[in-house]
């Protein structure tokens, strides 16, 4: 009985909390995240390190923003920004060429 009450309370909390969390996002913040993602993508591209789907994610984030799905747009922009950062770091870490050890001869 007590367990059931706790579960109901949790579900109610989630149901109420989710829209509140979403509502706390505004379009300006999402737009800023998309711009940051685009900057990160460009930085990766400048060293030939852009990943395959980063631009697609940014495009999708813009579409989600235009349709009012702010949380989804923010998620996509955040992932795309991280991809851009990692793509850049990946290439910068390999600026100095080294023959891999698996070629033994």
């Amino acid at each position: 009985m007590r367990n059931k009450t706790v579960i109901y309370a949790l579900l109610l909390g989630l149901a109420l909390g989710a829209p509140l969390a979403s509502a706390s996002l505004d379009a300006t913040a999402v737009q800023a995240a998309i711009s940051a993602a685009e900057d990160a993508r460009k930085q990766a591209a400048s060293v030939n390190g852009e990943w395959r789907d980063t631009a697609k994610k940014i495009k999708e984030a813009k579409k989600m923003l235009a349709e009012g799905y702010l949380a989804k747009a923010m998620d996509l922009a955040t992932v795309a920004e991280r991809e851009g950062e990692l793509g850049y770091r990946q290439m910068m870490a390999q600026q100095e060429f080294e023959m891999p050890a698996f070629i033994k001869h």
Partner: peptide, 25 residues
Amino acid sequence: YEDGKKFYYTRRGQLNFSCAHCHVQ
């Protein structure tokens, strides 16, 4: 030639593989 060689052995993409990882190693 050296640019091409570097490209071949450079890890890239989300999977972090170079051409050589699949086709040499």
